[in-house]
Design a protein around this nucleic acid. Structure first.
Lengths: 302, 302
DNA sequence: TAACCCCATATATTTTATATATGGCTTATG
DNA sequence: CATAAGCCATATATAAAATATATGGGGTTA
């Protein structure tokens, strides 16, 4: 017994007439008679009483009719849901964010905006480091990520550049350079550099070291912090200085001051990461909103 | 999209492997691949990700899976309900009762017993007169009736005798005959007979008049009561006497006393009425219970 | 009594789903 | 590194199913 049989059943019940029901169903009368008989015999009950003027529901038919209608409704809803999912109007998006990304105003702004535009979509957010994000992406535990390029070579992750964030120097309070309008990296040669470990964020790590090299010095690597924001307390503790994305200046941790870097300064690049070759509407929409937000929201004062 | 597609969908989701799913479904792999692809294209979404080790659900598939399961469950339930209805284990029975029938202990007893035996069956009861019961039966507003034969000639009602109930004479309190152990009808010649109108109960009416005739007298017809039980207040009001089914003595209306009738006494016959040529299990069961109850419950003291 | 309406049956046709055979791709294994 | 095995996709052929057409029977209405 198919869905079709339910439709036949309900239509005949509504018209009370097999011939008219066949017409409404866009078919001829004999096959409809035949199918409804087959349905009845497979169920073991008569659904209709054959009468001279047409047919009427038996008690069993009367009882079963609402069930049949329910099933048809659910099927309709199933199809509609599927279409909604296809168009990205419904669904769920698992978003992975690299460290400290939520501190960038554009990102939470974009997320809020997206969930306003697409109320049928639920979101889940998770913060992690870039390699872990890539792996989660590829194992389908996440759908889209905002990460710090580059990604591991073999990773089938498509990287879409999103924005370049300036970096700031984080100095412990009372440091002699605190008064300078901007600081050239070369002056930091003597300070231990507290940095986010390379294996957890090679892009950011390399950018900083390249800038040091361009400034003609080699940093003395100090302690490593497991998260980008984790460098701040270490600086505050006087263990060294750090180069951090600009957005971290929002962390109002006492004991640390943030300072402009004289050119050439490293940048913290953020990019969108999605699975290679995959771009469902849902993800496409979200990317559009993200890009728009980063463009208009032009990243903030220093 | 058929029910079949839902089964395919769910089974593949459960095995994570089209080949194994095909095996479980008792079919080959290619048609299953083909059908699931057809389903996906008709829905416009990918339900599965084709992977080297098998397939895994996409987010859309994950979302839709419980819906598909629900539809399958409802279909299963639909079929089970249909079978239940076919066997008379489920359903609804609309029962029509002639006037004063509920006063017979056997009837409510049988009804209670039936609803204990068949908890899946709901019952509705309605009390009316015999011609109206027949009409309700034939227009499918009732499924089974307990009526007082005979039924109108042209009525396609099958009548199954159920029981013969003795009748009693109803006298106003203080009537001279009150002290007699039993009363012969001939002694009522002078009393106006209050009776249920012939058009609403020809069988009962004719039985009473035949008894009068056998007793050698002709009753002087008094007022008519629209219901059998309605004769009692009229007797109490002193408007005459009445012949009523024995079960009415249960009505403890003051002002009336009930008395045995000396032979030959009229009988009030009760019968089951169902549509001609129709005997679904539900009705069959109910009839059995009724007949059993009337046999064992041997009708009461006078 | 004739005409009409409606459902059932029979046969032919078409559509549809299925099985068989095969190829490509990826992952385990010697 | 090569070979084998597992899994899905495609193509073709076969089988099954639903459908349309044609027709007949029962019952009601004019």
């Amino acid at each position: 017994m198919d869905i079709r049989h339910f439709r036949y059943f309900v239509t005949i019940a509504e018209t009370g007439n097999i011939t008219k029901a066949a017409e409404r169903l866009g078919m001829e009368q004999p096959p409809l008679s035949q199918q409804i008989r087959r349905l009845e015999s497979s169920l073991g009950v008569s659904l209709f009483r054959r009468q001279p003027r047409g047919v009427s529901l038996t008690e069993a038919g009367l009882t079963l009719l609402p069930h049949a209608r329910l099933i048809l409704d659910l099927r309709r809803q199933f199809i509609e849901d599927a279409h909604g999912l296809a168009q990205g109007k419904k669904g769920h998006l698992r978003i992975g964010l690299a460290g400290a990304v939520p501190l960038l105003p554009s990102i939470p702004f974009a997320i809020r905006q997206f969930s306003n535009i697409s109320p049928g979509v639920t979101l889940s957010l998770e913060e992690s480091n870039t390699p872990a994000l890539c792996e989660a992406l590829l194992s389908y535990r996440m759908d889209i990520t905002i990460l710090r390029p580059p990604v591991p070579d073999q990773a089938n992750v498509r990287v879409i550049p999103l924005l370049d964030e300036p970096t700031l120097i984080a100095l412990p309070k009372g440091h002699p350079f605190t008064d300078l309008p901007e600081i050239h990296l070369s002056r930091l040669a003597a300070e231990p550099l507290i940095i986010f470990p390379r294996e957890l964020g090679p892009g950011f790590f390399d950018a900083i070291l390249a800038a040091y090299r361009d400034a003609g010095i080699t940093p003395s690597l100090g302690q490593q912090a497991p998260q980008i924001a984790g460098t701040i307390p270490l600086v505050a503790a006087g263990l060294g200085v750090s180069i951090v994305p600009q957005s971290l200046h929002q962390l109002h941790t006492g004991g640390v001051t943030f300072h402009k870097i004289a050119r050439p300064a490293p940048h913290a690049t953020l990019a969108i990461g999605i699975r290679m070759g995959e771009q469902p509407p849902l993800i496409h929409h979200f990317i559009s909103v993200l890009q728009q937000a980063c463009k208009t929201h032009l990243e903030l004062p220093a």
